[in-house]
Amino acid sequence: MDTRKRILIVCGSGVATSTVVAQRVRAILDQSGLEADLRQCAVMDAAHEAKGADLIIATTQVSADLGVPVINGIPFLIGVGAERLAAQIVAQLKQ
């Protein structure tokens, strides 16, 4: 099955921390040889954009019932727990 996974990166504004996280996620994808489509959005639009996403990485609070698994992306911003988060993302994508 080769349908590309879609990752939605959510932050407060859709541009600030989600840009940082997107860069990290791209690096992780390259390193692990996985492919996925990335999209960034603001948390206000998350409910709408979540349709069709396979995974959400958020740097702000997101209501859990969007029907899509949500991973906390803050470790990428503070540098603590970043490797564990990367492994978590890879594991989630491989499902």
Binding site: V10, T17, A46, Q61, S63, I78, V80
Partner: peptide, 29 residues
């Protein structure tokens, strides 16, 4: 960020971020 973390050494620190981390709370939205 890396530089500051290293120089801060082993002191317990709060990591200071932007208030964006609290934006998604339902009351705030």
């Amino acid at each position: 960020g890396e530089f500051m973390r290293k120089r801060a050494g082993d002191r317990p620190v709060h990591i200071g971020m932007d208030c964006a981390i609290g934006v998604g709370h339902p009351t705030n939205m």
